[in-house]
Amino acid sequence: MSQITQGIRSILSVPAIYSLFGQLLDKKKGGGNTALVKEYIRPKANDQLLDIGCGTGNILDYLPENVEYTGFDANHQYIEAAQKRYGHRATFICERINTAHLGKYSQFDLVFVDGVLHHLDDREALQLFKIAYAALKNGGRLITMDGVFVENQSSVARWLISKDRGQNVRTQEGYLELASQVFSNINTDIRHDLLRIPYTHFILECSKQ
């Protein structure tokens, strides 16, 4: 995993600051996590959702109570914070998910990967797509969201994305090339309106047939 965790970026390793930062950036009305859940994740009652790289679990504030949620993250501080806040309605595992887990944690309706791919090199990202595919039921969907470089994007957005902790921000073609090695049914979207600040997100919705 390639990311910068020194200097000012290191403060995002503190769970309270990580959560607060996300809340401050989130556009509550018509954007942010509200739009992500409503337009892309689209959970149904009793869906089983796997969140890979769940952080402090803040997406749970936007999910229906009847979604069965399992979150994986390798940062023990994030997981401890998530368990304190959401442990009554979700399962959290402090590990970096791999195929060894799939016997116990598999057959999900939804797999969600938010802001992870741009921290991974191509080999690691391809492995993540394979893990997601194995974890899904037939007909299940993987949703990913990451910063992206696109033509004619805001210069501010491009600069902010270039300063991200993750060092593998790709073009939309770069993300799609990796996903298409595993999934054959893929929808994509580019959003410039999900945060309070200029930023460009690339969203993949990959279905397992």
Results as ranks from 00 to 15, higher is better:
L136P: 01
C54K: 00
I17E: 03
A100K: 10
I41K: 05
A157N: 00
P198V: 03
I41M: 06
I17W: 09
D114I: 13
D73N: 04
S106D: 12
F92D: 03
T200G: 12
I186F: 04
H76W: 11
G32F: 04
L50N: 01
V14Y: 08
T188E: 03
A100F: 13
K28M: 12
G139H: 01
Y86V: 02
L102E: 05
N168I: 06
S10V: 09
L136C: 08
G22I: 03
G166Q: 03
M1A: 09
E80W: 02
A100Y: 11
E68S: 11
A90S: 04
L195P: 08
A74D: 01
I17R: 07
L60H: 06
R9T: 13
L25W: 05
T34H: 10
L142S: 02
S180K: 15
G30Q: 08
S162R: 09
S106P: 06
Q172Y: 13
F149H: 10
R42E: 13
K29E: 14
D109Y: 09
Y105R: 06
K104P: 07
F129T: 03
L136Y: 06
Q6L: 15
M1V: 09
L178N: 05
Y199H: 01
I17Y: 10
R165C: 15
I59E: 06
Q3W: 14
R96Y: 15
D121M: 09
I17P: 02
S10H: 00
